[in-house]
């Protein structure tokens, strides 16, 4: 597969602080690649080096085979960027803001189509400052897309959005992938990685801890499956028959942990057949478990690492 981004031993220091510490990864044409990590992990620094907004201290980064330091202009023409905490001219309308970028790139056609595809055509004459948070992000994406980039950088595109707006934006991002745009995404939401990414890298304290497809990462680091049963002693006995590892969670439910899907399937049968009508949940391992295993902690809603 064609490599769109090649990063080799990339390091960025600010004074004594090492923000990015010798990371290497590739991004392939047509995929959604996520850089996952808590706040301060070095996600934005990495993205901004790739966008030619910062210079690496050492190591190399290439986009479309061009060096980010020496061939900035060739790269900038072909990428679209939505910076973190994106903002633009408050008192220009949606259309004026998007047109501004189009003019800078010298792009004439496609404005209407870009706005329509993002559901912004109806809001085109509204001032940016009058939009909701979710709509503002869409304007950001429109501004990143209007130049018809081959590669799109989205730096924490859904941070601070409500769940509804976040899900709507995910659908937009998925549709962009279908249009053939390669997408580089940073996020601290594990569900976002699962919902969108083909491949992901986990970054903590400037170091890449693991890279792979989401499935690979989950099967490698996600660990066990769980059956959670809200029920009586009898339920616990059934679980005990299939696994030694049964615990009680904070809500008082019994949690059985299993190594194989096979055993899970067998254990479910008697639980469902029981006359007690237990409330049963099967929990598959997720990126959250992967992150817990790899980074030794969780990330909270605000993006902070909790060890």
């Amino acid at each position: 597969m064609k490599k769109v981004i090649e990063v080799e031993k990339l390091t960025k220091r600010y004074g004594n602080v090492t923000a990015v510490n010798g990371i290497s990864f590739d991004v392939f044409h047509g995929e959604i690649f996520s850089l996952v990590g808590p706040n301060g992990a070095g996600k934005t620094t990495t993205v901004e080096i790739l966008e030619c907004l910062r210079k690496p201290t050492s190591g190399t980064a290439k986009v479309f085979g061009f060096d980010v330091v020496r061939e900035e202009r060739k790269i900038k023409r072909r990428i679209g960027v939505m910076p973190q905490e994106f903002n633009t001219f408050d008192r220009l309308t949606v259309r004026e803001n998007v047109e501004l970028v189009a003019k800078i790139y010298g792009v004439k056609a496609g404005l209407k189509q870009t706005l329509e595809s993002l559901g912004l055509w109806g809001l085109r004459d509204k001032k940016y400052e009058a939009l909701s948070g979710g709509m503002k992000r869409r304007v950001g994406i429109a501004m990143a897309l209007v130049s018809k980039p081959e590669l799109l950088f989205l730096d924490e595109p859904t941070t601070g959005l409500d769940p509804q707006a976040r899900r709507e934006l995910w659908e937009t991002i998925k549709s962009l992938k279908k249009m053939g745009v390669t997408i580089f995404l940073t996020t601290h939401y594990m569900e976002e990685v699962e919902a969108l990414s083909d491949r992901a890298s986990i970054i903590v304290k400037g170091r890449l801890l693991s890279t792979g497809t989401v499935d690979e990462l989950v099967s490698k680091y996600g660990g066990e499956m769980k059956i959670v049963v809200k029920g009586d002693k009898r339920a616990r006995e059934i679980l005990k028959k299939f696994t030694k590892n049964v615990s009680v969670d904070e809500s008082g439910s019994f949690v059985g942990t299993f190594q194989s899907r096979e055993v899970v399937a067998r254990a479910l049968l008697p639980l469902y057949r029981s006359s007690k009508k237990y409330k049963i949940n099967v929990v598959e391992p997720s990126m959250e478990d992967v992150f817990l295993r790899v980074a030794g902690g969780k990330i909270d809603e605000r993006g902070e690492l909790i060890s």
Binding site: L53, R73, K76, V81, P83, I104
Partner: peptide, 8 residues
């Protein structure tokens, strides 16, 4: 920052 990310 938004503008610096364009060829401007």
């Amino acid at each position: 920052k938004r503008l610096t990310a364009t060829p401007l």
